[in-house]
Amino acid sequence: MNIIVSALSFTYPSGVEALHGVNLAIAAGEAVAILGENGAGKTTLVKHFNGLLRPTRGTVAVGGWDTREHSVAQMAARAGYVFQNPDDQLFERTVQAEVMFGPHNLGRTAAEAGAAAADALAQVGLAAQSGANPYDLHLSERKLLALAAVLAMHTPVVVLDEPTTGQDARGVARISGIVEALKAEGRTVIAISHDVDFCAEHFDRVVLMAGGLILADGPAADVFARADDLRRADVEPPQLVRLASALGLLGAPLRTEQFVDLLAQARL
């Protein structure tokens, strides 16, 4: 499902102007990472994708639905949003019930919701804990649980807010696998993240934001090669890009294999 953002400006009731005429078209099945420092407007932008915020000026359409004409509950069936802090949403007595909450709200039957929950829990690696109380899990597991709660809603668009913070290497590998699986299913995946190395490896397109504007937008390798824009957005290049540039290699390698290929070519 595609997302079309046209001339979007947004001003908070406090008077803070967070977005100044943003244009962005995301095609169905794209994986997009949105980078920028705190206050750049990333969260304000993605909160428009499920109608949590409505444009002050301009429009946002998700799969042809203008977000101003639909309730957040209706938009939730199209764009799932995984919040950064899982403790802002967990409330059920069991892990299984927590994951069934979303599908239930979308009108699925108990059997459908149960099956979706079981699948989602298996995907995040929490199948064995389905009977546990969410608050008995470690924070990093609660974060995976919040992710499962959105996966079970089977939304065509999935928005992830800082998915890797607080995760150890196994947790990051688990989330990477889920992003790849969503891409393979043709779903649209959008992430806000400060973890540039994770973004470089799993997101084909990078949108760089600063001061409520899009500074750069394009294939990850192109955007990560634009050192000046990255500096203006206060975003460090990924480790491999920094290494390639220190070695004078041309191009921005996103994965270790690509870096080693570049190295091999340079040696020839």
């Binding site: 309730s71 949403q89 709200n105």
Partner: peptide
């Protein structure tokens, strides 16, 4: 502020509050 974030997070999971 925390209460507002929780409201957003649950509406994003399809909770109808109106």
């Amino acid at each position: 502020a925390k209460a507002n974030t929780i409201l957003d997070a649950q509406r994003a999971r399809g909770l109808e509050v109106e």
